[in-house]
């Protein structure tokens, strides 16, 4: 019993060390209102393909100002403090 408890604890801790990545197969659109600062961006609903995501995002940003921008990405680690980084794939 004791041994099993320890084993479980060890696994949990080891598991905590591993990167918890988002769902790999789903694309999200990341929209930034002003690229001149690093404010938190908006995240779109999930899309099945990068193409779908881009078309949707382009439609969305058609009337936006010059300093806004977007990218589609999948497999991103949702970091603390609102930062999005370490994505598996990012397209524009």
């Amino acid at each position: 019993m004791l041994a099993a408890g320890f084993l479980l604890g060890a696994c949990f801790l080891l598991g905590g060390c591993l990167d918890s990545r988002g769902q790999d197969d789903v694309w999200y659109g990341y929209y930034y209102d002003d690229l001149r600062d690093n404010a938190e961006g908006a995240i779109s609903r999930p899309y099945k393909t990068a193409q779908e995501c881009r078309i949707a995002m382009q439609d969305y940003t058609m009337e936006a100002k010059v300093t806004s921008g977007f990218a589609c990405a999948r497999g991103c680690a949702s970091a603390r403090d609102g930062a999005i980084a370490n994505c598996r794939e990012v397209v524009r």
Partner: peptide, 16 residues
């Protein structure tokens, strides 16, 4: 910055 959507999003502006 191919893993960072924000930096990627900046690329078009840079090009502009």
């Amino acid at each position: 910055t191919s893993d960072n959507p924000r930096q990627q999003a900046r690329v078009p502006l840079l090009e502009a």
